[in-house]
Computed example of a mutant assay.
Amino acid sequence: MELLKTYLDISVFGILGLMGFIALWITLERLFFYRQLSLADYSHAEHINIALTKNLTTLSTIGANAPYIGLLGTVIGILITFYELGQQQSIDTGAIMTGLALALKATAAGIALAIPSIMAYNGLLRKVDVLNAQYRAQ
Rank of each mutant, 00 (worst) to 15 (best):
E2N: 09
L3C: 10
L3E: 09
L4K: 01
L4F: 10
T6E: 15
Y7S: 04
D9Q: 07
D9W: 07
I10R: 10
S11T: 14
V12M: 12
F13R: 02
F13D: 04
G14Y: 06
L16D: 01
G17P: 04
G20R: 00
F21E: 00
I22E: 12
A23D: 13
L24S: 10
I26T: 01
I26E: 04
T27N: 01
L28D: 01
L28E: 01
L31C: 12
F32D: 03
F32W: 15
F33Y: 15
Y34E: 10
R35Q: 03
R35S: 14
Q36K: 13
Q36R: 14
L39E: 01
D41Y: 11
Y42S: 03
S43P: 03
S43E: 07
A45C: 04
E46K: 11
H47R: 14
I48M: 03
N49G: 11
I50W: 11
A51V: 03
A51G: 09
L52W: 09
T53V: 12
K54A: 11
L56N: 04
T58H: 12
T61D: 00
A64F: 03
N65E: 00
Y68A: 00
I69M: 00
I69W: 00
I69E: 01
G70S: 01
L71E: 02
V75K: 05
V75Y: 06
I76R: 02
I78R: 01
I78G: 04
T81F: 09
T81H: 08
T81I: 14
T81R: 05
T81P: 14
E84T: 11
L85T: 09
L85R: 02
G86I: 11
Q88H: 07
Q89D: 09
I91L: 15
I91M: 10
G99W: 12
L102F: 15
A103L: 04
L104D: 06
K105I: 08
A106Q: 01
T107L: 02
A109T: 08
P116N: 07
I118G: 10
A120P: 08
A120H: 10
Y121S: 11
G123M: 10
L124W: 02
L125G: 09
R126V: 07
V128E: 08
V128K: 06
D129T: 14
V130E: 05
L131K: 13
Y135H: 03
Q138Y: 14
Q138E: 13
